[in-house]
Every structure is written in structure tokens, then in C-alpha cells.
């Protein structure tokens, strides 16, 4: 058993400069959760299928379980904790709760990240666009119906604010 050398990775997570001594193939999700203790990012499958680990990397929605540390150097990462800080999306988060888009909650942070990404690109999505935007986020509790309602409601509200 031989280990490769650790490398130094610098990036920003939720606007905080971070530096890691880690193996190049360490997963971004492990840096976020184990090293930075942002445990709002969840692991459901480890292979990019469930979307629970979704974060924004340089503004793009990614599965943090599929990004190796070596590709995180210099990146700007936003997790669910970073979204809360921004306040901009509190109406979205409230809608998720009010409309019943949250049940067990394990998919919720990833679902919110996917929605934030959608609304950044398209503030007034159709139902089909919403379905496509969250198709990479598996929810086993809600049947998605109340999540659509929450997002549609939030679009109206966020739109009104703009």
C-alpha cells in the first residue's frame, strides 16, 4: 500500500478563503463536510445520482461527490450555508417549508441549490423547466408536487422583489 503525496488546495467556500492539505482525489464533499464542517451538504449516493450534495462551483451547479480536490483549486464554492447568508433566497426557503416541499429534509439542501441555480438563469421558469432543473435531485418523500408548488410560488415572490 503506497500513498501519493498530499497537495495543497486553496479555494473559497462560502466566501471564506480555505486551504487544505489533502490527497488530489479527495472529494469536494469531504472537504466541505469534514474539513469545513458545512454539514448542510448531504451525501446520498456518492455517484452523482441523487443530487443531495449539490453545491455551486464557480456559479455552476455540481455534484460535490464527483469533484476531486485537485480540480477545486482556486474555485469559489457556495453551499446551502452560503445561500442562507445571502438572505436573497429566504423567500424560496420559506416557500419550501410553507408549501410542504420539505419532509425528511435530506434532499432539501441540494434541492434548494438546484433551484437557486435555476432561478439565477431563469427567474420565471415553466413547470417543465422546473422539472428539468430538479431532475437530478431525487426526493423519495414528497413526490415532487409540493416542491413545484413551492418553487412556482417563490418565483412569483422573488420576481416581485426584483
Amino acid at each position: 500500500m503506497s500513498n501519493s503525496a498530499k497537495i495543497t488546495i486553496s479555494c473559497r467556500i462560502n466566501q471564506r478563503p480555505c486551504s487544505f492539505e489533502t490527497y488530489p482525489m479527495t472529494r469536494l464533499i469531504d472537504l466541505i463536510r469534514d474539513d469545513e464542517h458545512f454539514t448542510g451538504t448531504k451525501e446520498g449516493c456518492g455517484e452523482g445520482e441523487c443530487g443531495a450534495c449539490s453545491v455551486l462551483m464557480n456559479g455552476e451547479l455540481v455534484n460535490s461527490c464527483l469533484v476531486p480536490a485537485v480540480q477545486v483549486n482556486g474555485a469559489d464554492i457556495i453551499t446551502i450555508e452560503g445561500i442562507i447568508r445571502e438572505n436573497k433566497f429566504s423567500a424560496l426557503q420559506e416557500a419550501f417549508v410553507d408549501f410542504g416541499g420539505v419532509q425528511c429534509g435530506i434532499c432539501t439542501p441540494g434541492m434548494v441549490m438546484a433551484t437557486v441555480y435555476l432561478l439565477g438563469k431563469n427567474p420565471n421558469p415553466t413547470e417543465a423547466e422546473i422539472r428539468e432543473a430538479i431532475a437530478g435531485n431525487i426526493c423519495r418523500c414528497t413526490g415532487y408536487t409540493k416542491i413545484f408548488e413551492a418553487i412556482q410560488h417563490a418565483c412569483g415572490k422573488l420576481g416581485a422583489l426584483q
Binding site: 426557503q93 417549508v97 420539505v102 432539501t108
Partner: peptide, 22 residues
């Protein structure tokens, strides 16, 4: 009445603590 679910806020903000978060 559709009162706000007790655990809603912690879950939607990622603050809820699941076993792997401890």
C-alpha cells in the same frame, strides 16, 4: 390548519443534524 412544520426551518437551511453530521 397548515401550521408551519416544526423541523422545516432547520431542514431547509441545512442546519438539521443527521447522524453523519455528528
Amino acid at each position: 390548519r397548515p401550521v408551519i412544520r416544526k423541523d422545516g426551518k432547520d431542514k431547509v437551511t441545512g442546519r438539521a443534524q443527521y447522524v453523519d453530521d455528528l
